[in-house]
């Protein structure tokens, strides 16, 4: 187990190195550079060149790459060119807001999709099953920006039950969390339903029933556990996505998450901030994947990690 984790962590270092290299090159390939963006439309070439030199952007690409990588290896990601403060401070501030939203959305999605999926599977081809299928399809297809604005118009503007935008109180969390959760509900409900249907026809379920185990115990102890692996996998990927920032929902609801920070940084060609934000997002993804893999062992004892 320890050997497996170590191996995965080593592999993660390579993934992070690859991601950093790609983002290092991509931000520099984009037209426009930090100096011209900072000086704006009124700048002369002389001023731009002077600022480029000041920012260390006049060094050759290999030189910049070597210094960037050696600093990154020491976990020094430098200062944001625009915000004039360590990039890790800026990212640190957003993690809490992003995390709060992502976790609320995932909890909400699980709380809705599991009961729906189970009911649909147990009443296969019944009216509830069809209703759940239609609803989950809608959940998956509705675009986030539209859903967010509709929720604002209905629950904030018309009914005045909830605040429209911001992150100041727990009530502010509700609408953005629903907006993010709904597509997830769509995916998870379908997975839970189809996973359960498949498992319920297995021999061991028939055996369990034949032994006279109560139906709810058959469901929770024998069936559920065996259909969780694909669900956990998808949940892990989605949580990773959400922790990487949900820029559209953050913009619609004025939520101070990491997605808006990253988009601002890209627009302003703030190289250090873009690089560090991408590194954070990649790291989150790699770690979540690792946790998902480790959870398989617990869910299915037949899986052994080597």
């Amino acid at each position: 187990m320890a050997h497996y984790i170590l191996q995965r962590l080593l592999y993660a270092v390579f993934v992070l190195w690859g991601a950093l290299t790609v983002i290092f090159l991509v931000v520099r390939i984009l037209p426009g550079d930090p100096a011209s963006m900072m000086l704006g439309a009124g700048a002369t070439q002389t001023e731009i060149d002077a600022l480029r030199q000041n920012l260390g952007l006049d060094a050759s690409l290999p030189e910049q790459y070597v210094s960037f990588m050696s600093e990154a290896a020491r976990l020094d990601f430098g200062e944001s060119l625009w915000l004039r403060r360590p990039v890790l401070d800026s990212i640190g501030e957003r993690i809490a807001a992003t995390g709060r939203l992502a976790i609320a959305a995932v909890i909400l999605a699980v709380a809705i999709s599991f009961p729906l999926g189970i009911v649909a599977a147990l009443r296969q081809r019944g009216p509830i099953d069809y209703a759940v299928s239609v609803l989950s399809l809608i959940g998956q297809s509705v675009p986030g920006f539209w859903l967010g604005i509709m929720l604002i118009l209905i629950f904030a503007r018309q009914l005045r039950w909830l605040p429209s935008a911001g992150s100041q109180t727990p009530q502010h969390l509700i609408l953005p969390a629903i907006t993010l959760a709904l597509p997830l509900v769509g995916v998870l409900t379908r997975l839970v339903r189809s996973g359960l249907l498949e498992v319920m026809h297995e021999d061991y379920i028939r055996t369990a029933r034949a032994k006279g185990i109560a139906p709810h115990a058959v469901l929770t102890r024998h069936a559920m556990r065996n259909m969780l692996i694909p669900v956990i996998t998808v949940l892990g990927i989605q949580l990773g996505n959400l922790l990487g920032g949900a820029v559209i929902v953050e913009t619609v609801f004025g939520w101070p998450g990491i997605g808006r920070l990253l988009v601002d940084a890209i627009t302003k060609r703030d190289y250090p901030l873009v690089q560090a934000a991408i590194l954070f997002i990649t790291t989150t993804f790699v770690l979540i994947n690792l946790i998902v893999d480790l959870s398989y062992v617990y869910l299915d004892p037949r899986i052994r990690l080597r």
Binding site: I152, P163, G166, T251, R260
Partner: peptide, 18 residues
Amino acid sequence: FRDIPEVAAKATSIETGE
């Protein structure tokens, strides 16, 4: 000063007295 980037949310906030 609250940062509300989205137009619909901004218009709603002023209308509801937020």
